[in-house]
């Protein structure tokens, strides 16, 4: 059952990622990205990372993606503006990406991941565990991240303001 679900979600993720790469229209690219993000959220559910799946859906699909679509709508003259790469660029990029994929796959699958790659070792963390370690072990990064978000908020507002 889990295997079937994994293959379905992996197919959704890969198909929409391919859609992101090949689609010419930038709005369609963003919609394909929605498929990838949703598929990855489903994979998180499969991996017992419920909190992360929900965060992925809220922040990525509900926030970042809408921001991106918003950006597209504010910065394009017509829906059909295409910026096609030249054929040479596309070929080179494809070859590099293929090499990269082959390389990473061979490296990661042959590597000896020490703590047994056979199955889950311990019970997966619950929401409360994630929250606790976020406010104890990882308190400093958490605070830095919140300061970063504040800086980003002010910076984005400053950058995007209209010149008077």
């Amino acid at each position: 059952m889990d295997a079937v679900a994994f293959y379905i979600f992996a197919a959704v993720v890969l198909a929409s990622a391919v859609g992101v790469v090949v689609s010419k229209n930038i709005v369609r690219t963003a919609v394909c990205l929605l498929g990838t993000l949703g598929g990855v959220a489903c994979l998180y559910f499969l991996l017992d990372a419920n909190l992360l799946a929900a965060i992925q859906l809220i922040v990525y699909a509900g926030g970042t993606l809408i921001l991106i679509v918003f950006g597209v709508m504010l910065t394009s003259q017509s829906p059909w503006v295409g910026f096609k790469p030249t054929r040479g660029q596309a070929v080179v990029a494809t070859i590099v990406a293929l090499l990269l994929a082959v390389g990473i796959i061979t490296l990661t699958t042959t590597a000896d991941w020490r703590p047994s790659a056979e199955g889950p070792l311990a019970a997966s963390p619950k929401v409360a565990d994630v929250g606790n370690s976020l406010l104890t072990t990882y308190l400093a990064p958490f605070e830095v991240a919140s300061v970063l978000l504040l800086v980003v908020m002010i910076g984005a507002a400053y950058l995007a303001r209209t010149e008077k």
């Binding site: 992996a10 930038i26 910026f83 660029q89 990269l100 990661t108």
Partner: peptide, 29 residues
């Protein structure tokens, strides 16, 4: 389903992301 399945999927998505960055000329792409 084990670790390797996820690693392969992740590698493929990574390469597609790199490809997307290389081929799009639209900044949002």
């Amino acid at each position: 389903i084990g670790l390797n399945h996820y690693l392969v999927l992740s590698a493929l998505v990574f390469s597609l992301g790199v490809l997307c960055m290389a081929t799009k000329r639209n900044a949002i792409g």
